[in-house]
Simulated scan of single mutants.
Amino acid sequence: MDKTLLKGLRVLETINELDGQALTIEQLALQVGLTRSNTHRTLQSLSHAGYVYRDPVSGGYRCTLKLFEMGARLLFSLDVRSLAAPFMRELADQTGESVHLSVLEGMDVVYIDKIDSPQPIRAYSVIGGRAPAYAVATGKVLLSFQPADYLVQYQSVLQQHTASTHIDLAFLRNEFRQVQLRGYAENHGEWREGVGGLAAPLLNGLNKVVAALGISGPLDRLSPEAMTRMAPLVLRSAQALSSQLGYRGEYFDLPKE
């Protein structure tokens, strides 16, 4: 058990519980039962990580909005899941393939909802499961709209999963530029041999890409021609769901069916 981490969490929770009241090092040390030096070091770490800041007037410490941002992201994930259900069902009916709703966490996508294909041979996944974002369609969509240095931060985790996996940064950046232009990403067996996918971004009222909606299935069915044919279906579903999330801007040019 990491005692340093537990100390940090106790300090953070104590500051957060006092409804915005700034606490001095001495007050915090007394409340959490730590020495002054221990409390000071913990506050320095929390401040460096962006969770607390020192009030210039009182000299006490307050929580930043970082905890709120983390909680808001979780709440959004729960909210988009409930809003997405009818759009996912319609897309599943239209394509006959498995449908996934994904969010980005580091260099992974997390599947927050799914509908299985009725076909006897289908892509396997579980709600709460993860996949390398750079190797699946929903992940590529989400990575395509991250800051320019995002890939560099996670370069060390890029690894080959199949013969089709792309881990070259220049290649990935070029692919992500194409995704930004056309509005959807494809996966041709880059995570699992013989399994492909197609996905489009979900935007919210702040014009931010916050999740991805996609389909997946065997490459025997999701051939390049089939993906081109199904791209408008995925884009239209993602556009309609984005509207429900508050997005009012221009979506991507929809290809002809």
Score class of each variant (00 low, 15 high):
Leu23Arg: 04
Leu23Val: 01
Ile25Glu: 15
Ile25Gly: 05
Leu28Thr: 12
Ala29Met: 03
Gln31Thr: 02
Gln31His: 07
Gly33Asn: 09
Gly33Ile: 06
Leu34Arg: 00
Asn38Thr: 14
Asn38Val: 06
Thr39His: 08
Thr39Tyr: 09
Thr39Lys: 03
Arg41Glu: 14
Arg41Asn: 14
Thr42Gln: 05
Thr42Cys: 12
Leu43Met: 08
Leu43Ala: 06
Leu46Asn: 02
Ser47Met: 07
Ala49Asp: 14
Ala49Ile: 00
Gly50Cys: 08
Gly50Pro: 13
Tyr53Phe: 15
Tyr53Asn: 03
Asp55Tyr: 02
Asp55Gln: 04
Ser58Val: 06
Ser58Pro: 03
Gly60Cys: 02
Tyr61Gly: 03
Tyr61Ala: 03
Tyr61Phe: 15
Cys63Glu: 15
Cys63Arg: 10
Thr64Val: 08
Leu65Gln: 12
Lys66Ser: 14
Lys66Met: 13
Lys66Ala: 14
Leu67Asp: 08
Leu67Val: 10
Leu67Lys: 02
Phe68Ile: 10
Phe68Gly: 05
Phe68His: 13
Glu69Ser: 06
Gly71Lys: 05
Gly71Arg: 09
Gly71Phe: 05
Ala72His: 07
Arg73Asn: 10
Arg73Phe: 07
Leu74Lys: 04
Leu74Thr: 05
Leu74Trp: 12
Leu75Ser: 12
Leu75Gln: 14
Phe76Pro: 01
Phe76His: 02
Ser77Gly: 15
Ser77Arg: 03
Leu78Asp: 12
Leu78Arg: 12
Val80Pro: 00
Arg81Tyr: 03
Ser82Trp: 01
Ser82Gln: 07
Leu83Ser: 10
Ala84Arg: 00
Ala84Tyr: 01
Ala84Ser: 12
Pro86Met: 04
Pro86Tyr: 12
Phe87Lys: 00
Met88Gly: 11
Met88Trp: 01
Arg89Ile: 05
Glu90Leu: 08
Glu90Pro: 04
Leu91Thr: 06
Leu91Phe: 10
Leu91Trp: 12
Leu91Lys: 01
Ala92Arg: 13
Asp93Gly: 01
Gln94Lys: 15
Gln94Phe: 02
Gly96Ile: 05
Glu97Gln: 14
Val99Pro: 12
Val99Phe: 10
